[in-house]
Design a protein around this nucleic acid. Structure first.
Length: 433
RNA sequence: CGGGGUGUAGUAUAUCGGUAGUACGUCUGCUUUGGGAGCAGAUAGGCCGAGUUCGAUUCUCGGCACCCCGACCA
C-alpha cells in the first residue's frame, strides 16, 4: 500500500519521513575539513575510505544539479555527450608512455593476467575513438564530453571531497584542424566555464587564473575559487576579475596580465576547473590525422577541459557553509523549499494544510522537501538549517491561527510571516528554471 | 612517499595492568511540542596480529586504517 502511494506519480520521495538517511548532531572527530564535516553531518555523503565517498539522496540531488548546469553549458558550444569506460587497456597507455610515467595511475591485473588501467583521464580512449571518425578536414572541428568516474592514486587524499581518489569529472575534448581553430574554441570555453561557475553560485569568488604552460597563448588557464580550504595561492586583480598563480608571479613579475596593475591581493584557492591546449600531445602518438584540402595528412590539434563535480560541490560548501550547517545557492540546492510541518498527533489540520501546500507547490514545479515527521520543533529547525535548503516554510498551529505562513531565508536568516499568495510567489521565485 | 598524530558502542567521549562508564542515537512505555526535551527501562564497544604478564583495552613490537604538515597533483 505504501509503495503504491509512493510510486504512484513515478516521482522521487520528497517526504522526509521516507528518507532512509539521517542527520548527525556531531561530525566524526577525525574530520577537519568543513565540507566533510557538514556534508557528513547533514547526510549528503558517506565516506567509504579516504578520498572515496558515497553520494546519498540529498547529496546526489546537488551533484545532479551541478551536472545538469555543466551539461547545458557544454551543449551551448556543440559538445556531444558520450560515456567512456573506466577499464582501459594497458596498450593505450603504453602508446602515450603514461603507463610508466604516471605515478598516480591505478593499475589492475585480473585473474588471467591481463593488465588494465582505471582511467584517471581519457585522452588515451577518446583519441583512438575519434580516429575512427576523422578522416577529412570536413570532419573537423567537433567536441565531445562525458561525466565519468576518474581514479587517481592520490598519495594523500585530503580536504574532504576536494581531493579524492575516485571522483566524478566532466571532461571535454575538442578536435581541430589547426591551432588557430583550437584557440578560438579555447577562448569560447573560458566564457562557458565562467558561466558555469556563475550559475553554480560561486561566480563572485571564482577567478580565471593565468598559469604558465600554454605556449601558443603564452599562458594556460585555471579556474580558482577563493576559500581558506584551498591548496593553491593566487594573486587577484579585482579590476579585471582575474588572477595569476605563483609561477607567473615568480617568472614575470607581479603584474596583472591584462591591465598591468601591480595592485594584486593574495588568496588561497581551490582549482575548480581547468582548460588545456593539448595541441598534438596525444593526437601525435596515436597518429590522429586528417586530409586537408590538398589531400595531405595533417595532425589533429586538440584541447581538453575539465571540471571536478565533487570538488565544485565541496567548494560551494566551503564558501557558503556556516555554523548552523549547509547553505545552498538556489540553482544547485537539493530542493527549493523545505516545508516544515509542526503538527500534532491529535490535530490533523496542520497536516492537511501542509499536504495542500505541498500538492500545490509541486504541481507548480517547485521542488519541496516535506518534513512530515512527528518531532519537536527545535529538532526540526536545527535539522532544516543543517540541510540548508534556501527557503524554509513553516506550517503550524500558530501559522494556521494567524492565517499566514512563516518563511525563513536560510542564507540571510530573515524570517517573515506572509499571506498564502505571497508565499506561493516566493516559492515560485526560487524555483529552478 | 617523508614527518607528526589518533584508533574504546552507530556518533562523541571517560577511566583503568584486575569483569569498560557517560551522553547522543536506536528500541519500549509515559510525558512534552516554536530552536537538537524529560522520566523509566532496553540495545550496543576496546582496529588486527604477536610479545611481556597470573592477567593487556591499557605496556612493547609489527601491521592496517583515518587525520594533519610537506612532497606530488594531465
Amino acid at each position: 500500500m505504501i509503495f503504491k502511494v509512493i510510486y504512484k506519480d513515478k516521482k522521487p520521495i520528497m517526504r522526509q519521513s521516507q528518507l532512509f538517511t539521517r542527520t548527525k548532531k556531531e561530525a566524526p572527530s577525525d574530520e577537519v575539513a568543513k565540507n566533510a564535516k557538514l556534508l557528513i553531518r547533514a547526510g549528503f555523503v558517506d565516506k567509504l575510505q579516504a578520498g572515496v565517498y558515497t553520494y546519498l539522496p540529498l547529496g546526489l540531488r546537488v551533484l545532479k544539479k551541478i551536472e545538469n548546469i555543466i551539461r547545458e553549458e557544454m551543449n551551448t558550444v556543440g559538445g556531444q555527450e558520450i560515456l567512456m569506460p573506466s577499464l582501459q587497456p594497458k596498450e593505450n597507455w603504453q602508446t602515450t608512455g603514461r603507463w610508466d610515467t604516471m605515478d598516480d595511475l591505478y593499475k589492475i591485473t585480473d585473474t588471467s593476467g591481463r593488465e588494465n588501467a582505471l582511467g584517471p583521464t581519457h585522452e588515451e580512449i577518446v583519441v583512438p575513438l575519434a580516429k575512427q571518425f576523422i578522416s577529412s578536414y570536413r570532419d573537423l572541428p567537433f567536441s565531445t564530453y562525458q561525466f565519468q568516474n576518474k581514479f587517481r592514486m592520490e598519495l594523500r587524499a585530503k580536504s574532504g571531497i576536494l581531493r579524492g581518489r575516485e571522483f566524478i569529472m566532466k571532461d571535454m575534448y575538442s578536435f581541430h584542424r589547426d591551432e588557430a581553430d583550437m584557440v578560438a574554441f579555447y577562448e569560447k570555453m573560458k566564457a562557458v566555464y565562467t558561466r558555469v561557475f556563475e550559475r553554480v553560485g560561486i561566480g563572485a569568488t571564482t577567478f580565471l587564473t593565468y598559469a604558465s604552460g600554454g605556449s601558443f597563448s603564452k599562458y594556460s588557464h585555471e579556474f580558482q575559487t577563493i576559500t581558506s580550504a584551498g591548496e593553491d595561492f593566487i594573486y587577484i586583480c579585482d579590476k579585471c576579475h582575474l588572477a595569476v598563480n605563483k609561477e607567473i608571479i615568480e617568472d614575470q613579475g607581479n603584474a596583472c596580465p591584462q591591465c598591468q596593475s601591480k595592485d594584486l591581493r593574495t588568496e588561497t584557492s581551490v582549482e575548480v576547473g581547468n582548460i588545456f591546449e593539448l595541441k598534438t600531445k596525444y593526437s601525435a602518438p596515436f597518429n590522429l590525422s586528417y586530409k586537408d584540402e590538398e589531400g595531405k595528412d595533417q595532425t589533429v590539434v586538440m584541447g581538453c577541459y575539465g571540471i571536478g563535480l565533487g570538488r565544485v560541490l565541496g567548494t560551494v560548501v566551503e564558501v557558503y557553509g556556516d555554523d548552523n550547517g549547509l547553505v545552498w545557492p538556489a540553482e544547485i540546492a537539493p530542493f527549493s523549499v523545505h516545508l516544515v510541518e509542526l503538527g500534532n498527533k491529535d490535530d490533523k489540520t496542520v497536516r492537511e494544510e501542509a499536504q495542500k501546500l505541498y500538492d500545490e507547490l509541486t504541481r507548480d514545479g517547485v521542488e519541496v522537501l516535506w518534513d512530515d515527521r512527528e518531532l519537536r520543533p527545535g529538532e526540526k529547525f536545527a535539522e532544516s538549517d543543517l540541510i540548508g535548503i534556501p527557503l524554509r516554510v513553516v506550517v503550524s498551529a500558530k501559522t494556521l491561527a494567524a492565517g499566514t505562513f512563516e518563511i525563513k531565508n536560510r542564507a540571510t536568516g530573515e524570517v517573515f510571516m506572509v499571506e498564502r499568495a505571497v508565499l506561493l510567489e516566493q516559492c515560485n521565485q526560487c524555483k529552478v528554471k
